[in-house]
């Protein structure tokens, strides 16, 4: 009877130790469980726009280009094509 009581005390200590360990590891478990979407590929692109019509297209960035640079002529009406913006396109994947 006495031995049994002391054993339960030991068990209680073990449980307390286990709970402590769990609280220590909990933040890590939570951070692993909530995995965010991650970027798999980044690409620099530029938007080119015709100064005459509404033609607009997105293409790969070419070194040396800047916003406002004339980079060719429009396929529709031969108006000058100008770089409207340069930005980073990110392709993400959810785990």
């Amino acid at each position: 009877m006495v031995a049994l009581q002391l054993d339960s005390l030991l068990v209680a200590l073990m449980i307390a130790a286990l709970l402590l360990l769990l609280t220590a590891v909990l933040p890590w478990i939570l951070s692993v469980a909530s995995s965010k979407s991650r970027v798999v590929k980044e690409e620099l692109v530029e938007v080119v726009k015709c100064l005459k019509c509404d033609y607009e297209s997105v293409r790969k960035y070419e070194k040396g280009d800047y916003v406002g640079k004339v980079v060719g002529s429009c396929p529709n009406d031969k108006g000058s094509l100008v770089v409207k913006a340069i930005y980073v396109e990110r392709y993400t994947q959810t785990k």
Partner: peptide
């Protein structure tokens, strides 16, 4: 950082 699409 270089402009992102959202900011564009």
């Amino acid at each position: 950082s270089p402009l992102s699409k959202k900011i564009y």
